[in-house]
Design a binder for these strands. Structure first.
Length: 869
RNA sequence: GCCCCUGUGGCGGAAUUGGUAGACGCGCUGGAUUCAAAAUCCAGUUCCCGUACGGGAGUGGGAGUUCGAUUCUCCCCGGGGGCACCA
């Protein structure tokens, strides 16, 4: 029989409309059913989805559909992280309004996502740039302010002196503005901050309770919070007329044990003492300006060559007032950490060592490894940070590192020149952005009343539509009238805050909004109490720290202000690997998409040209797919050509979901072939299988029993794989199982076997259920072909018969000296004596043993036999 | 620079978490079917020696622990992510 090929395009449209017409995926609270909230990180509407999105949403959809089948009331919503810089860049480059650009992107991407056949509740969709969303953000900010969770302080930004605009770190390239090319400066601006540091300890401790989070994410957050115990040391200055009398230099150190190895002190360029000295010293002022050209990013600062400026000031060593240490201003000292000043111990800190070598300062090792000789142990280009005994440190000599820390801390505390402290690396969250396309900060500045929140009744503070991007800088600032308002308290002329919120705020609570997306309050307790926390959150590993930590904090802040009753937003987290791809740039530095480039040659001779112009292209590093690098691959052609099911299946196959994958469509033919093969096998099977309501036979023949074992074992394995999100393994099991079915269907003998028709129906039905979460359209088509009248999307996950999972015999390998020499099969539960004699009887073993003496036989039942000779 | 992850055939990867390395898929080779092609089916496919039987090597590199290491420990090398204004 020649069966018809599976027509993906026709079937996919059909089932998508059936699901939609029946509102199959619309969720509602149902206290009688256990809930399950599946959420994938919502996308930034860049215009087109790329393969990274397909991977993310295919994974989430498998979980959502699987949990539905398992009887859960599933919430699986979708929305848009719609504020952000790319919309403003589009406005500047193409003159299109950010809102218009964003909404048309949303339309395009929604269509693409719908073609994927995801089990989403689209009735809950929202975009964060909608005033009906961001008004609640404004209301909550006012609540945060009232509760002391928000405050204003001066903070530095990257400033482009030519474009007169604030630059994001991404827009600073080698210390220059990306458009103007002008060296970047740092500027102090008054900005709003949220007090995430209030929760540093809680955010740290609670990580232990997040058992369904990857350990690596918890580790990254722990390091980010960076709790340290150390000592604040007050260095007295040697008298100097540039200082106020009694002024001391406060230094925070986690290594007080190395105090005798100190050879200098260093101040951050932003340190108050640096600034006051600079006022009277043009050379120092110039040096500080140079430091500031590195921009604000920690990466730039730490990678830069270590440089310093000798202030001429001296401090006295706390344990020896005859010992003076020079005080530098140094480019690698961060004002935000500790006190913004350090004492440098070059022997035991690499940065200090680099600095000391550059400025010819002493390098005295004071921690000596156990196996080293203190008399000869020296440090040259590599600092020693390991354990050891203290040396060259007077009364500390011979102590361990920890003992020495205690002794130093105790002595200085007693003297009043030191204080044990706990510090966190975590800084407060700066949320002000000098940009248009974000949520306006609902604050009014009145000369009379000061900082006044916009009354809640007047929310939302809407973004004005009539803005111009002709001038650089924030269009809200230059808007003719938007910022001029009356003070809500005294009615006098006042000014609106023209900064908008960091877009991380938008994504810090959207999961809560999805529970009741049309509520006139930010959240609806009845809905959030039912749905939250998110049971399975899925997104890229690149969000391991910022987004996930901000959300954890924001949830706590919402709890404190009465908007929610939980502290941890995400019960289970899965961080998928990124889809990465090579990057391509023209010699002028313009990014090109993979479509625009032709690659020739291999290895050393590999090169690329731009298809349109024939010009040679620079092949850049392999990076995560992103709009800004243009290294994205649009799934549209793949979906159009092969169908959404094939695209989904392909993305789930092969690679473990947490691993990065370099995009290639090699192998997609295989996925497509499998779809056809499965459909064909089903067609052939339909001619053999028993009717839908046929009762289960009392007994099964050998062939049928083998098939049933394969069916139930595959189901057990696939269920476990989906529960743990190991989709690639589930795919492999399904391939194997399909091969088994194909073989059974094509074996004439099997058909005569007792109960085979029933066993084959069972196999095909189970197979259909198993592919359903991954290839839902094909699943529905098969389900219907099998004579089912319900939707597979609403069907229950099949039952496993436990007694089909176990065999009565065991096959294990026999090794000689750890090298495999053969295998034996024996009845389950056999004694070690039986196993041993079977193993020794093997030809391959006995042959080797003839000339050798057996020293030991290791038998691990049901695992291995190892004969040691 | 710092923190986190990662490395297995020609390619993506599997290995019950210390117990048969290479499941499954891709690709490739040969064959069947066909007027021909597509599709499909069958066989083979880690590398080296050998017609074969078989033997040896082998999980980025080096050391270690163990009867046994892809798995645990240490050092080194390559790749990716994050570094607070990309999202």
């Amino acid at each position: 029989m020649i069966s018809e090929r599976y027509n993906a395009r026709k079937c996919e449209l059909h089932w998508q409309s059936v699901w939609e017409q029946n509102s199959v995926f619309q969720a509602a609270e149902d206290p009688a059913k256990p809930k399950y909230y599946v959420l994938e990180m919502f996308p930034y509407p860049s215009g087109r989805i790329h393969m990274g999105h397909v991977r993310n949403y295919a994974m989430g959809d498998v979980v959502a559909r699987y949990k539905r089948a398992r009887g859960f009331n599933v919430l699986h919503p979708m929305g848009w992280d719609a504020f952000g810089m790319p919309a403003e860049n589009a406005a500047m480059e193409r003159g299109v309004h950010p809102g218009e650009w964003t909404y048309s992107n949303i339309d395009a991407m929604r269509t693409q996502l719908k073609h994927m056949g995801l089990s989403l509740d689209w009735s809950r969709e929202f975009a964060t740039c909608d005033p009906e969303y961001y008004r609640h953000e404004q209301a909550m900010f006012i609540d945060f302010l009232a509760m002391g969770l928000a405050y204003r302080k001066k903070s530095r930004v990257n400033w482009d002196p030519v474009d007169n605009t604030v630059l994001a770190n991404e827009q600073v390239i080698d210390g220059r503005g990306w458009r103007s090319g002008a060296p970047v400066e740092q500027r102090d601006l008054s900005q709003w901050f949220l007090k995430i540091t209030d929760y540093a300890e809680d955010l740290l401790e609670s990580l232990d309770g997040l058992e369904r989070w990857p350990e690596k994410v918890r580790a990254m957050q722990r390091n980010w919070i960076g709790k340290s115990r150390g000592l604040l040391v007050r260095f007295a200055f040697s008298p100097d007329k540039r200082l106020k009398s009694g002024q001391s230099l406060d230094v925070y150190t986690t290594r007080p044990d190395t105090l005798f190895g100190a050879s200098f002190c260093a101040l951050s360029p932003e340190h108050p003492i640096s600034k006051s000295l600079a006022a009277g010293n043009p050379d120092l002022a110039a040096f500080i300006r140079e430091c500031q050209q590195l921009g604000t990013s920690e990466e730039e600062i730490e990678k830069a060559e270590k440089r310093g400026f000798d202030t001429g000031l001296k401090v006295l060593h706390p344990f020896d007032s005859n010992w003076q240490l020079p005080v530098y201003v140094a480019n690698f000292i961060l004002m935000d950490y500790g006190t913004g000043a350090i004492f440098g111990c070059p022997a035991h800190d690499q940065r200090d060592l680099d600095f000391a070598n550059a400025y010819k300062l002493d390098v005295v090792p004071v921690v000596i490894p156990e196996d080293a000789d203190p008399a000869t142990f020296t440090i040259e280009n590599e600092a020693y940070t390991g354990p050891g005994k203290i040396a060259n440190s007077k009364f500390l000599d011979g102590l361990s590192v920890n003992e020495a820390m205690d002794v130093v801390a105790a002595k200085l505390e007693k003297r009043g020149t030191g204080e044990r402290q706990t510090h966190y690396r975590l800084r407060d969250w700066g949320v002000s952005r000098q940009r248009y396309w974000g949520c306006p900060i609902p604050i009014i500045y009145c000369e009379n009343c000061g900082t006044v929140p916009v009354p809640k009744a007047e929310l939302p503070v809407r973004l004005p539509k009539d803005v111009s991007f002709d001038k650089p800088g924030n269009p809200l600032e230059s808007h003719p009238d938007w910022k001029y308002v009356k003070c809500p308290q005294c009615g006098r002329d006042a000014l609106r805050e023209t900064d908008t919120f960091d877009t991380f705020i938008d994504s810090s609570w959207y999961f809560a909004r999805f529970c009741a997306p049309r509520s006139s309050n930010p959240t609806e307790t009845q809905a959030t109490d039912y749905w939250l926390p998110v049971d399975q959150y899925i997104g890229g590993i690149e969000h391991a720290i910022l987004h996930l930590l901000y959300s954890r904090f924001y949830t706590r802040a919402m709890h404190k202000t009465g908007h929610i009753n939980i502290d941890e937003p995400f019960g289970g987290l899965f961080t998928q690997g990124m889809v990465i791809h090579e990057t391509y740039r023209t010699p002028e530095g313009n990014w090109l998409t993979p479509d625009e480039v032709k690659i020739t040659g291999e290895g050393e001779t590999r090169s690329a040209i731009q298809i349109e112009t024939g010009q040679k292209i620079i092949i850049g590093p392999i990076e995560k797919m992103s709009k800004s690098r243009r290294n994205t691959v649009d799934p549209a052609r793949i979906i159009e050509h092969y169908g959404a099911d094939t695209a989904r299946w392909f993305m789930l196959s092969d690679s473990p979901p947490e691993r990065d994958i370099e995009w290639t469509d090699a192998g997609i033919e295989g996925s497509s072939r499998f779809v056809q093969r499965l459909w064909r096998t089903l067609q052939q099977g339909l001619l053999i299988i028993s009717p839908i309501a046929a009762p289960k036979p009392d007994r099964f023949g050998a062939e049928s029993n083998l098939l049933r074992k394969a069916t139930h074992r595959t189901l057990a394995a696939v269920s476990a794989d989906i529960e743990t999100l190991r989709f690639n393994r589930a795919v492999a099991r399904i391939y194997e199982f399909t091969n088994t079915i194909v073989a059974a269907v094509s074996t004439a003998d099997a058909h005569k076997d007792s109960g085979f028709a029933w066993a084959l129906r069972e196999a095909l039905q189970y197979l259909t259920c198993m592919i359903g979460p991954m290839m839902p359209h094909l699943g529905e088509e098969c389900w219907s072909a099998l004579g089912q009248e319900t939707l597979l999307a609403n069907a229950s996950w099949p039952q496993i018969e436990q007694d089909l999972l176990e065999d009565d015999t065991v096959t294990i390998a026999v090794q000689i000296n750890g090298k495999r020499r053969g295998e034996i099969t024996y009845p389950r539960g056999s004694s070690n004596d039986v196993i041993e004699s079977l193993a020794l009887k093997l030809d391959s073993v006995s042959r080797t043993l003839q000339s050798k003496e057996v020293r030991k036989i290791i038998i691990v039942p049901e695992r291995i036999v190892n004969v040691v000779i």
